[in-house]
């Protein structure tokens, strides 16, 4: 059974000077799924996310990735194992071109990243692969543009292309549709589904419409604890979850899809 899980946390605790942000979270992410982590503001979603990406280290508990204990590893080491994160604000390298942004992520594989004596043109072998990734997210026509000039939604797409270029087996997305209009939300949701075809996705998300539509499993956090976990339809009916979201008003969950 353990083989089925790509990521697991056991009794994960994070305290900040006595304040318990995460109070013993057991999370189990199944391989190949889109798993959403939701919860009201202050529920500890971001803290859990930061613990998984090693930005924070836990007060207690363990994190297992593909059966390996990664609790003590550094962020870059975790990334090299295939657990790659994206950022809340679209994190691109603003003054590199769109193509170079993606190529940076591909470049590590070449093993020449310390070669200061080699010409930049030696990276040209990656261009083809970079363009393919850009084409997947619809950015191929913008390859030569400087990233800072892209509109917000496209930056997000570039970020996802870059994240995919890093070769993740488990993709961690931090509020991927935050601050977006309808059209962009739809595009990003489609991108996530595309990305999830070959890998597992764990996302922290506010937008219930997106979660309801694309997530296979949902874990609900409240005050640092897991209060429910399962498919959307099951979780949305859970009285504790309904209670957590705006009293007893089930409509606040954004409506169960028909």
């Amino acid at each position: 059974m353990a083989d089925e899980l790509i990521l697991e946390t056991r009794g994960l605790v994070k305290e900040f000077r006595g304040f318990v942000a995460v109070g013993g979270v057991d999370l189990a992410v199944r391989r190949g799924e889109i798993h959403a982590l939701i919860g009201p503001n202050g529920a500890g979603k971001t803290t859990v996310f930061n613990l998984l990406t090693k930005v924070l280290s836990p007060t207690a508990g363990r994190i297992l990735y593909a059966g390996e204990d990664i609790t003590g590893l550094k962020p870059a080491a975790v990334a090299r194992r295939g657990l790659v994160r994206s950022f809340q604000m679209s994190a691109v390298f603003p003054h590199l071109t769109v193509l170079e942004n993606v190529r940076i992520a591909l470049q590590r594989e070449l093993g020449t990243s310390f070669h200061f004596w080699q010409p930049e043109s030696s990276l040209g072998v990656l261009d083809q692969r970079a363009r393919e990734l850009l084409a997947e997210v619809g950015l191929e026509p913008y390859a030569r543009m400087v990233a800072v000039e892209l509109p917000y939604g496209r930056k997000r797409a570039l970020e996802i292309a870059t994240t995919l270029a890093a070769g993740p087996r488990l993709l961690l997305l931090d509020e991927p549709t935050q601050g977006m209009g309808h059209e962009d939300v739809d595009r990003v949701a489609a991108l996530i589904q595309l990305a999830a075809r070959e890998r597992t996705v764990l996302m922290v998300e506010h937008n219930m419409n997106v979660v309801a539509r694309i997530a296979d499993t949902i874990t609900v956090l409240q005050r640092g604890l897991v209060i429910a976990s399962g498919p959307y339809a099951q979780v949305a009916r859970d009285p504790q979850v309904v209670e957590a979201y705006m009293g007893a008003d089930a409509d606040a969950l954004g409506g169960v899809p028909a």
């Binding site: 390298f93 003054h95 590199l96 940076i104 470049q107 020449t112 070669h115 200061f116 080699q118």
Partner: peptide
């Protein structure tokens, strides 16, 4: 303008 320089730029940017 090397693979190394490319990573340096990335570090400077983000």
């Amino acid at each position: 303008h090397s693979p190394f320089g490319q990573v340096l730029k990335a570090i400077r940017e983000n």
